[in-house]
Design a protein around this nucleic acid. Sequence first.
DNA 1: CTGTTAGCGCCTTCAA
DNA 2: TTGAAGGCGCTAACAG
Lengths: 364, 364
Amino acid sequence: MAASTLTEVARLAGVSPATASRVLNGSARTPGPDIAERVRKAADSLGYIPNAQAQGLAKSSSGLIGLIVHDIADPYFAAIARGVQAAARHQNKMVLLATTAGSPADERAAVAAFAARRADSIVIAGSRSARTADKQGNAELAAELDRYCRNGGRVGVVGHAVVGAESDEGYHVVGVPNEELAAELARELAASHAGEFVIIAGPEGLLTSDDRVRGFQRGLADAGLPPADVLHTGFDRTGGYEAGMELAARIGAHGGSGQAGAEAAAPPRLCIFAVNDVMAIGATAALRSKGLRIPRDAAIAGFDDIETLRDFRPALSTVRLPLEEIGRLAVPGAGSGTVGAGTVGVTGEVTLRRSTEPGGEPAS
Amino acid sequence: MAASTLTEVARLAGVSPATASRVLNGSARTPGPDIAERVRKAADSLGYIPNAQAQGLAKSSSGLIGLIVHDIADPYFAAIARGVQAAARHQNKMVLLATTAGSPADERAAVAAFAARRADSIVIAGSRSARTADKQGNAELAAELDRYCRNGGRVGVVGHAVVGAESDEGYHVVGVPNEELAAELARELAASHAGEFVIIAGPEGLLTSDDRVRGFQRGLADAGLPPADVLHTGFDRTGGYEAGMELAARIGAHGGSGQAGAEAAAPPRLCIFAVNDVMAIGATAALRSKGLRIPRDAAIAGFDDIETLRDFRPALSTVRLPLEEIGRLAVPGAGSGTVGAGTVGVTGEVTLRRSTEPGGEPAS
DNA sequence: CTGTTAGCGCCTTCAA
DNA sequence: TTGAAGGCGCTAACAG
């Protein structure tokens, strides 16, 4: 027993399907007030629900917004998804979700699937990769997106422009000043911190990670400091943990665990910058498992200011990013004025907290 | 310039649309190998992408799975969403997302929207409410779901059966033994804890919250203890924080902040059970803001074992729930055998950690 | 094995 | 203002 159709409603109301369509959906003013009422009654007496597929076919537009993320359970993407969802709701559209773990091939497939569903626009979040291994994948992804745009689709990108994108037509990118913010973070840290700096980065080639690393190094240079060592690892909690274990060994070698690390002016305490909060938390866990304490034995900072992590102790120094707003802005047509192509930027804010406090006393 | 159609492909390949359809989509074995090749070439020379809307219209099935959550940025729902996504992928379907903040009216609307899109099945996560204020909303939601089922849709529910659901036809619920697990948690806590118990609960009427409260009280009774006080508040971090502030006042009045709370056998230390992890974290933050320490001045436990919170210190005692699996199982047709209606259950595990350790020493 | 003929449910000209 | 006809793109019965 399939759902009832417009035709059935029309018949019950004693009018033509066209008329019924007009009162139930068509935006032009409803025909004869008497007729309208009759149709409406018929409609909900039958529990009529318009078939969006048919509507979409007829009008060639679907009311769908495709969203591509690496992993919806990652709080970074979840926050962005919330923003996208809000914007979609504002446009009376629904969001279609695809997760890809960052694989360009999967992303290409997702774009194709969205195109097949005739999504009105698609939002692609998550760092692009510039690794040579992904080169072909990226090219294919770009081609797929270009085709989608050429067919009238609009795409919103978070962070960077799509790697090989051709026309700017239809693309809409939300720029995140990763490099600038990382530089600022480095400068502020350098001002109050005398020890050595280390960076826990994602895989080489991950644009977001690379940008943050570059920015941080630049900031150190601005402060007259030498570049920091860079540890490349996974862009997630586990990666942070592994790097943390390695650093714990280094610190241990220098005799970190001992009571207090020289209260003097220049303690040799390490200052760690993890390119995102989740990695920072992983690193912290690793250090702790080795008996090291933050900020006493090492300072640590992250990036993103993930909401769920705000109650973490010691409070994590980080760079606040307006994740939800980023999601909202990434939806084409939802931004502040800028309708079609173009770039809108957001700003973040360096937020220094306990985890990088200078003379890290025992937390008691 | 719209995307190219099957007809165009067929023409280019010099065959009928039906044939083209057969090679490109129809599962029956591809016709003449030569023809097939010709069609395929034509297809991707044109960059053909099948129109899923048209396919759906023709076959009346859409390859869509609707997912309803309160808030996609809530780690609880995000984890479930990941599971749903995985199951969807397994079925070659895509997931449509709707967020409702728990409002029955919005949920009803979401179900209608999914029905309009002819979603093959819909998964509804998040606690149902039994408040009288929501009574009508619930009834309408149930009606909408029933109608959806009657039209051949299948719905998966996380936690409880839908409140007013009529036929069991098409419903598929993933049972979570909230009450039993909460009881077990209470018993284990009671065994090692001598102080008073308090519960930070969600709004009265929220089924999940109510179940956990009931279970916890039962567990206390099993241990021969009197029922705990119950504070009703928001089912989120803020709710937990507010309740935490109130409790901090109580504890303070009893002189909690003082160094050590009696190392003796029966310290009057409060043991707090927050009905979910996020609330527990909020409460912890509140206590800390008042100078109280966990587990020294109060013990605290949560529920869910949210992944992002596992590195929290002091490690939070909680009940581990296989959130991702729950999401996976909630998708109709993805479960272990059980195809249509029915109930599958999952189990959780009481996980005691530092936050409820008996003689809470200063964390140093 | 391939082509032809009908719809799927709706919207949109075009007449009336 | 309302009804009739055609088509959106594809698939599913039938013929051939």
